[in-house]
């Protein structure tokens, strides 16, 4: 760059001089922007991470640090006592086991049903396809709260065309406090935000070359065989995205959990955390790390809640650390964008 046209002069200066000045200006601009960008990103990251950091430090603080005005972020006495108490009170392991059970099974079911539906909408021409797909969009738009009450009654007196009534004489089965209100909709594309998953899978399959299927057909591959032998392998990035969304949203769900599961009968992580303040107060003061006769200070409750939410976040954060790369990169290749 520096030697181009070095013999030519402009207003008494060589072109070289101008080229250098422009270059340095460009560099300055780039640097300035990099600094602004860094400040913005650090600021946003701070906003996102701040509550998690605060909760974490509160969780590992001992009780005296909580009341010590000189302690703000870094505890003087690190103590894991909070964790022991909270794990016992919220029955952490039971809740984790139940949550994992529901989350894993619904995720697998949703993944299967939504991938099938997405493929069906993307690669087949049949009567009413556009209308049916509009219905998929409709299920995304309608808030689940609109049909909450009917859904509750539906599962409270569950029946299919009066079959159960016919055989047992009772008015349907009571599926409340069982896992079926989670599994049945998941198996039929009606779980949490499943319309979105169908949409993502459809967008992905639409972008695949048609020749793949035609070649498979010529080689004597049936429609279903083509699907799972040929079309499924390239869909892994899209499947990963759906898998992660599905795990996270199911695990975090409190709405359906409150609707279908009573915390005393079927304890999952979100409902256990919701009940934590009540459960803690129900304990004897001596069991929660207070001296005999001391009253429960509001700050104690803050500390316990912080510990509880950190504990319930741990599985997700572990998952995120491992899957974060796929999550971030697969989105780019999912074909969320058609």
């Amino acid at each position: 760059m520096a030697n181009i046209g070095s013999g030519i002069t402009l207003r008494g200066r060589t072109v070289d001089y101008y080229a250098k000045r422009i270059m340095s200006f460009e560099r300055l601009k780039r640097w300035a922007w990099a600094i602004v960008r860094a400040i913005l990103l650090i600021g946003i990251s701070y906003i996102i991470l701040y509550p998690i950091i605060v909760q974490f430090t509160q969780a590992i603080m001992s009780r005296e640090d909580m009341f010590d005005a000189t302690v703000r972020f870094i505890p003087k006495n690190v103590s894991l006592h909070n964790f022991v108490v909270v794990i016992n009170t919220m029955k952490y392991w039971e809740a984790l086991l139940n949550s994992s059970y529901i989350t894993l099974v619904t995720t697998v079911l949703q993944l299967i049903s939504c991938t099938l539906a997405g493929y069906g909408f993307a690669r087949f021409k049949f009567w009413g396809r556009e209308i049916l797909f509009a219905l998929v969009i409709f299920t995304i738009i309608v808030p689940p709260q609109t049909i909450t009450t009917s859904l509750y009654l539906h599962f409270r007196y569950f029946d299919i065309f009066g079959i159960i009534n016919f055989f047992t004489g009772k008015r349907g089965l009571n599926l409340i406090d069982t896992v079926w209100p989670f599994f049945l909709p998941a198996a039929t594309c009606m779980g949490i935000r499943n319309g979105l998953y169908i949409f993502i899978m459809r967008q992905f399959f639409r972008g695949m070359p048609k020749e793949l299927e035609e070649a498979a057909l010529v080689d004597g591959c049936g429609v279903f065989k083509t699907f799972y032998l040929i079309m499924l392998r390239p869909a892994v990035p899209a499947l990963t995205t759906v898998l992660l969304f599905s795990v996270v949203w199911q695990y975090n769900d409190i709405f359906y959990v409150n609707l279908f599961l009573n915390v005393t009968k079927f304890r999952v992580m979100t409902s256990a955390l919701q009940m934590l303040p009540v459960d803690m107060l129900a304990l004897n003061a001596s069991n929660v790390g207070l001296e005999q006769g001391a009253t429960v200070n509001p700050l104690d409750r803050v500390r316990w809640l912080a510990t509880g939410s950190i504990l319930s976040l741990i599985p997700l954060i572990v998952l995120y650390i491992f899957a974060q790369r796929y999550f971030v990169e697969s989105i780019e290749r999912t074909g969320i964008v058609g």
Binding site: R123, F124, L132, V136, A187, T188, F224
Partner: peptide, 9 residues
């Protein structure tokens, strides 16, 4: 056969 794929939905 497309109906078969979207039948869960």
């Amino acid at each position: 056969k497309g109906y078969a794929f979207i039948s869960p939905f």
